[in-house]
Design a protein around this nucleic acid. Sequence first.
DNA 1: CGGTCATTTGACGAGCATCAACCCCTGTGG
DNA 2: CCACAGGGGTTGATGCTCGTCAAATGACCG
Lengths: 232, 232
Amino acid sequence: MLRSQELTQLKALPLFADMAEASFNALLDAALLQQFPAGVVLIREGEPADFLHVLVDGLVEIYTEQNGDEWGISLIKPVTTFILAAVVSDQSYLNSVRTLAESRVLLIPAPRVRAIFDQDVVFARVVAQELALAYRASVKKLKGHMARSSIERLANWVLAEANRGPGHNVVIPFDRGTLASHIGTTRENLSRSLALLTDHGVRIRGREIVIDHRDQLEAFARPQPLIDDPSS
Amino acid sequence: MLRSQELTQLKALPLFADMAEASFNALLDAALLQQFPAGVVLIREGEPADFLHVLVDGLVEIYTEQNGDEWGISLIKPVTTFILAAVVSDQSYLNSVRTLAESRVLLIPAPRVRAIFDQDVVFARVVAQELALAYRASVKKLKGHMARSSIERLANWVLAEANRGPGHNVVIPFDRGTLASHIGTTRENLSRSLALLTDHGVRIRGREIVIDHRDQLEAFARPQPLIDDPSS
DNA sequence: CGGTCATTTGACGAGCATCAACCCCTGTGG
DNA sequence: CCACAGGGGTTGATGCTCGTCAAATGACCG
């Protein structure tokens, strides 16, 4: 159950802001808002999709387990839905999900989501919008994997992270093994790659990456809007 | 403009079958049904998304051009929409598209698609469904790329194609360079990989791949539903 | 029959995974 | 206060996978 204070907070999210009051209430009266510590597995791939998840606060990774190793599919930052596609198509989760930091997650029963989709066009549009963005993000990651080396992927990840804030540095918000699994390489090679980036305008200070010469880093990484811009 | 005969054909497509007659007509009265020979570039990445495309008949590939090379993103078979995500989110095309065989394509102006989406819930649901499937297909391809070697990807591609028909053989419907770009390797290595599959229950006869011992091929490829099943 | 294009084969090297050793930091217990 | 163990991170050595370049072969078509 939700407190009324939480409800007004949620109603303000872009995800829900424009929808009809009635459908909003119908969506949320069966929802749960839960808080999880870091490192909790929320979803295991293969299970049926019973809840739409909305990351309200924190950090979550979507990953897949393949013969003993884990590979990162995407990183979810607030406020975003995840596993929407499984809910919409009423199928099993393709991937597993775990928290990487303490997180607040809103859980909405899948049948309820599908019902409100049919009743409220505004909500339907938001859902389609989120699906489209998720699809494009996945295709961009695929493009990066097919066309770039692991060190180029890393360099572009650093640039993308740097673009999220105005500062000249990036802090890796999790351990290096996790980052490696999202870049698509191993811990060892990630370490080597970070060392090599030192020759391209960057200093490594533990988990902090200081960008001294952005132009140098960009000359090396050669970012492309249609791969690296989250908003294109 | 469309002929009435074509209209009734289109109305029967799963994409349009359940929607209201009025919205169907509104969608299609501004649409074009065009026929293209093989090898025509329909869309170039970076252009604004002005038309939703529906492949009614034929075969097209979605690909991306990266510093001189081309990489296949997905293969589209009838009847499927493509570049739906760009239309829904009103952004530029992420990828280029070309026909691989003679194809009939229905072109619907993007603003019209968005308008009907808002008016007809049934159509909205179909659109969301298609987006969800496209997203899941992309994630599956990504998983395959992160977790498997190129020869394993090829072996699983062969199995997946074999599952589409009841026969014991697969015919590559385009040249080897194109297949290589979708598997995520080069022409040369694709050729070597095909030769190596010979040790795992398969014979190569030009463009035809004959599966003599499916169990042997499966033991080698180790297909997984959550990567290789198109319907999961 | 000659030319162009698709495909194969060979040789080589770059990129990357793997295994193993080592370092550094932190927390724990004697 | 020190010894030690454990986790995260780095470094080195080695070999496999795969891309690249070059040449040969085969296929198709004028």
